[in-house]
């Protein structure tokens, strides 16, 4: 049924066993984002190392399975990559989410995040998936301006 396409096994897995959850030191920037329509919120920190490498993305927050799983997948994808690489993943993820289900996902770029493709068909839930990713983008920008 329709619902099954949104609640992919991988999303449920990440929701039940979130990766990298909890706020950690050291960090270069911390942001707090909320989704005012549903009250989901996230506090997110990034640690950027030498040569623009993301050493850690740590986060804490509350929300639905989609927003929590998206944060967990983000942690996995971003940690160990360069800022530049991760920002292109964020862009691709944003494009997918805002594509109303009409956009073909680039699995090469997105990796596990491709599991969220089904969410794009539910306008009300797109913000849930994007919450942590937008927070991450914001945090990276702030860390660079320090």
């Amino acid at each position: 049924m329709i619902g099954e396409s949104m609640y992919q096994e991988l999303i449920l897995e990440h929701y039940k066993h979130p990766q990298g959850r909890g706020l950690r030191e050291p960090y270069d920037a911390e942001v707090h984002h909320v989704n005012p329509t549903c009250g989901d919120e996230i506090t997110l920190r990034v640690r950027v190392g030498d040569a623009g490498k993301i050493e850690d993305v740590s986060y804490d927050g509350q929300g639905c399975s989609i927003s929590q799983a998206a944060a967990s997948v983000l942690h996995e994808l971003a940690t160990g990559s360069t800022v530049e690489e991760t920002l292109s993943v964020v862009d691709e993820f944003t494009r997918l989410m805002q594509g109303r289900g009409q956009v073909e996902a680039d699995e090469e770029v997105l990796g596990d995040a491709v599991a969220f493709a089904g969410v794009a068909k539910f306008p009300a839930r797109v913000k849930c998936a994007l919450l942590s990713w937008m927070a991450y983008k914001d945090a990276v920008v702030r860390s660079a301006s320090r």
């Binding site: 619902g3 639905c64 399975s65 539910f122 839930r125 849930c128």
Partner: peptide
């Protein structure tokens, strides 16, 4: 279980 997930599954299924 977050209410958004409850509502979504009730609707979808």
């Amino acid at each position: 279980i977050h209410p958004h997930d409850v509502g979504q599954i009730l609707d979808d299924e």
